[in-house]
Amino acid sequence: MTSEVATIARKASSPVLGRFTPKPRPEPRPRLPSAGAPELVLVQPEAERRGGLPRPLRRAIGPVLLVALWHLLSVTGVLSPAVLAGPATVLTSAASLWATGELQDAILASLGRAASGLLIGGTIGVTLAVISGLFRLGEDLIDSTVQMLRTVPNIALIPLFIIWFGIGEAPKIALIALATAFPLYLNVYAGIRNVDQSLVEAARTLGLSRAAMIRHVILPGALPNALVGLRYSLGVAWLALVFGEQVNATAGVGYLMNNAREFFQTDVIVVCLAVYALLGLIVDFIVRLLERLLLSWRPAFSGA
């Protein structure tokens, strides 16, 4: 490194001095007595700065350490199986649940519930938000009503839902639909109302019709907020799913978990928790992918 610098310096300086007659140089500016040449620091290119592990691996470190600690506490007997089964036991019971097909059935049942609840709730939330975002009449009729209903805790409605819809699939899906409708409504509505007014004005000078304005300016402008709403909705959909499945379920991950509780099978309970966590991670990954695809026009801050 140092020798390279020296070579470059020599190359640059020697011919120049030979060819030009140097002008009389002005006196060097007076310096403070202590100030010599400033110390130079090397600016590192990003590739070098990020030494060591690639990012996906780095992200795995935390979870892996946690599981290792859990394993250590289990094999040393600090954590008794009655309190929490160790990772090895959990893995074997997951494998046997998978072999009997119970686990797959439960996952499919739960995913089906979450998906239909989200579909219904999302459709309602987005539709209401678009109507009250775009039209003043819609806002007057819808917004205050939604704002009022929003403050009622969803879980408090479970008893009412059971009376209305019985104890089958309907109250569970209704609970998820209700829970997911609000975050989507709030964020899509805010997104529409926060669309940059100067862009709307510019679009008007371009002669866009009302429909074209909605399609090309307002909805795309509301998209970042809408995706935030989707993220929230997915989060509460999971929560509502867990709560809903505690109510007399005959299938699904919650059902599996309730059964396990009856027999103090902490290993199965942990399998179910892990399934919830894993499904949550997968859904989060899908939303991230969606954001990257739909918001590729937006250079976002990705962290230092």
Binding site: L206, G221, W297
Partner: peptide
């Protein structure tokens, strides 16, 4: 301010509403 729609590539901005 140029007031281009950030979600449309430059050429689509140019012909927006045309």
């Amino acid at each position: 301010a140029p007031r281009l729609m950030p979600w449309k590539p430059v050429w689509r901005n140019v012909t927006l509403g045309l």
